[in-house]
Amino acid sequence: MPRTGERGGPQTRARILDVARRLFLERGFDAVTVAEVAREAGVSSVTVFKHFPRKEDLFLDREVDAVELLRSAVRDRAPGVDVPASLRETTLRLVDARHPLSGVDARSIPFLRTVAASPALVARAREIASDLQRILAEELERDPTFEGDRTLLAAFFVAGYRAVLVETAGRLIAGESPSALLDDHRARFERLFVALRSGVAPDRGGREASAG
């Protein structure tokens, strides 16, 4: 017989996430079992796995948001705006809003510490980056207006974005404040887009952009 309030809807999913985050932040990801999360949330382990196929997805749950942002940057960009420019605008908008995916949200510091302390979460984060790279390359393949190297652009963008996040995460964990490193964080993203523009993407006229 289902436990009290055990349903398959978004409220159940949100409750499971809230409980999982609290337990993982309090005790560390590897010290908490899915059964403990289920018990605290008042659901069965089967229900937890129905919403989150992997334990790691109980903590790294923003992959769907990242996918939607990538797809929107390609599909919904304004006429005359190429993909690198749209990716740049999306990235800097996240930074300016201190979005959790920007890497400079002060509220994310406990999250970053928990990820860094868990080999399982670090490995899952790498898998997610690989998935995002594949999805971006597929979006570019469907875009008839993109004339650059789709595979390289997707690989360089995702790897570069992750490199900026990892560097900033290490500094935040070491005790630097988000405000103190914000300018450098933003500047490193800008250097990433200069590299993308000069290396793998055509300019807006369809010609390969020069390094200068």
Rank of each mutant, 00 (worst) to 15 (best):
Y161G: 12
R54T: 12
A85W: 05
A154S: 04
S179H: 11
E26K: 10
T12Y: 01
V166A: 13
D105C: 11
P10L: 14
A85K: 08
R13S: 08
P110H: 04
V200P: 08
R197S: 11
Y161W: 15
E63L: 08
V34H: 03
L165W: 09
T145Q: 14
A169Q: 08
D183W: 11
S177F: 10
L132A: 04
G148C: 06
Y161T: 11
R191Q: 11
E176R: 10
E68W: 13
G28N: 02
R207V: 14
V46M: 12
E147F: 13
E127K: 13
V83N: 03
F59N: 09
A41Y: 05
E176P: 02
R204H: 09
R13K: 12
L17S: 11
P2A: 09
R22W: 09
P100G: 03
R13F: 04
P100Y: 03
L69V: 13
R13A: 10
F52A: 01
A174E: 09
D149M: 05
P119Q: 02
R207Y: 14
G28S: 03
H51V: 09
L69K: 07
V48E: 03
D57K: 15
E68H: 15
L153I: 00
R191Y: 07
E26A: 11
E190H: 10
L58M: 05
A174D: 10
P119H: 07
R107F: 06
A154L: 02
V194I: 14
D131G: 11
V19E: 05
R93Q: 14
A154F: 00
D183V: 13
L101F: 06
G5L: 06
D76C: 09
S108H: 08
F49P: 06
D82H: 05
E208W: 15
A35R: 15
R27W: 09
P2W: 00
E89P: 07
F59Q: 02
V81W: 02
R98A: 13
E138W: 05
E63R: 12
E127H: 13
V194R: 15
L152Y: 13
A195R: 14
S118C: 01
G206K: 04
E190L: 08
I109W: 01
T4F: 15
R13W: 03
R162I: 09
F193M: 02
A163G: 10
D65A: 11
E190D: 11
A123C: 04
A73H: 01
P119D: 05
